[in-house]
Design a binder for these strands. Structure first.
Lengths: 209, 209
DNA sequence: TCCATAGTGTATCTTTTGATACTGTTCGGC
DNA sequence: GCCGAACAGTATCAAAAGATACACTATGGA
C-alpha cells in the first residue's frame, strides 16, 4: 500500500513495529464520495474504517427521520464497527460520507488479537469507546431535556468553534436533518433568532453574532 | 474477605488464579440501602462497583428532571466508573441503589493493568462497554423518536418480562421519574390504556393484559 | 380513631412541535 | 433570458406534552 501523509500520521501513533507492519499488510484503502452510504442499519460489519481524510456522519435513524450522533474525523474510527469486531452483531446506526473521504479499512478479525497484543492499539480501542460513549451521552442529554431553539444554537456554536468561523455554510433542510426535525421548524426558529439579533441569515449561510 | 455465593459466581467467571487472588485482595465489600446515592454527577470516581446483590439505577439528570439509562444487575458494572478507571474524568451520570444492595468495590487503579494482563478481565471490560453503549442507543432511540404512550408500554413490557410477572409494582410518580416526564402525563396515558383494555390499574400496581 | 402522606383522577390552559400548503427568491446551466 | 431545482418565508391547523390546581382515596402509623 502506498504511504500517504495521513497514513503516516496514524502509523506513528501506533509505535509497535509489528503492529505497523500488520496494519499496512492487512488493510486496504477506500474512497467515498459525499453522501455515499458506508454502513446501513442492520448491516453486519466486516471491516473497521479508520478515517484518513474527510469525515463520516453517523446517524441514528427510524423510518424517515434521523438524528446526528457524531462525526468520525481523520484518525478516528466508528464505535459500531469496533463493537462489531469483538462481537458479531448488526449495526444499529447508519454512516454516510460527510464529504469526499478516504478510509483505511481494517478487517474486523484483526481487532481483538491486536487489542490483546499491542498496547497502543488497546489504548486506541478504549479511547474510541470512551469518546463515542461520551458524545452519545451529550446528544442524549440535549435531545431529552432541551428545546429545539437551544439545540439549534448549540449546534451552530459548536460548528462555528470547530471550523473557527462565525459564517456557517448549511441549509435549513440540512440542519433539520442533523437535529431530527423538519425544515419549517428550523426556519421558524432561525427567523426568531434573527429578529432577536442573535444571528444573520443568508442563502445557505448563517452568521453568528 | 468472606466468600459468599455471589462473589464465588463472579470469581468463577474470571478463571485466572492470579486475577482471582488480586480481586479478593484489593476490593472491599459495601452495602447500600434503597435510594442511597452511589455516584453523583460531576463526582470523580475512584472505584469500580461490581454488583453482587440487588441493583443500581443509572440516570441522566438535568436540573430537577431525570431519565433512566439502565440498571446495573448482579455480576455487572457501571460504564462511567469503568471509563473513569482508564481516564480520570468526572461522572456524567447519577447512580442510585434501586434496592438494598451489596457491591464489590474495586479500586480504579487496578482496572487498566488487569485489562492488559488477564484475558477474562479484558473480555469483561469490553462486554461492559458494548452492553452499555447498546442500551444507551436503545434509550436514545425511544426518547428521540417515540411518543410517551409507546415508551410507557415498552417500559412496562420490558419490566414484566424481566420480573416474569404481569403485575408491576410501581407508582405513577416513579414511572414518571424513570421516563423523564411528570406524574399527570403518566396518569393520563395509563387511564387511556385502561380504557382500551390494555392494562388494569391498582394502587401502586399495573397489570398488563 | 384520627391524621398525615402517598397515590390517583381529572379539568383547564399553554407551549412546543409537527404537518401541510402556498409563495417567493436565488442560482446555475442551457 | 429561461427554466428547473434548491432554498427560504410564512400562515394555518392539530397533536403532544407540560403546568397548575383541586378533589378524592387508601394506607400506615401515633
Amino acid at each position: 500500500m502506498q504511504m500517504r501523509e495521513d497514513i503516516f500520521k496514524i502509523i506513528t501513533s501506533l509505535p509497535e513495529k509489528d503492529l505497523q507492519h500488520q496494519l499496512l499488510e492487512q488493510s486496504t484503502m477506500l474512497n467515498y464520495d459525499k453522501n455515499d452510504v458506508i454502513v446501513r442499519e442492520g448491516q453486519y460489519v466486516k471491516t473497521l474504517p479508520i478515517v484518513l481524510e474527510g469525515s463520516i456522519r453517523v446517524f441514528q435513524t427510524k423510518e424517515d427521520r434521523e438524528i446526528l450522533l457524531y462525526y468520525v474525523e481523520p484518525g478516528q474510527t466508528c464505535m459500531m464497527s469496533l463493537s462489531a469486531g469483538f462481537f458479531n452483531q448488526a449495526s444499529a446506526i447508519k454512516a454516510v460520507a460527510a464529504s469526499t473521504c478516504t478510509i483505511l479499512s481494517v478487517p474486523t478479525r484483526c481487532i481483538a488479537p491486536w487489542q490483546r497484543r499491542f498496547d497502543s492499539w488497546n489504548s486506541f480501542v478504549l479511547k474510541t469507546f470512551r469518546k463515542r460513549y461520551g458524545e452519545l451521552l451529550t446528544v442524549f442529554e440535549s435531545v431529552a431535556f432541551d428545546h429545539i431553539d437551544k439545540r439549534i444554537l448549540d449546534y451552530l456554536r459548536h460548528r462555528a468553534k470547530k471550523t473557527n468561523t462565525r459564517q456557517i455554510q448549511i441549509s435549513h433542510q440540512m440542519l433539520a436533518d442533523e437535529l431530527g426535525t423538519t425544515r419549517v421548524v428550523i426556519s421558524r426558529i432561525l427567523k426568531q433568532f434573527e429578529t432577536d439579533g442573535t444571528l444573520i441569515l443568508g442563502r445557505g449561510t448563517i452568521e453568528l453574532k
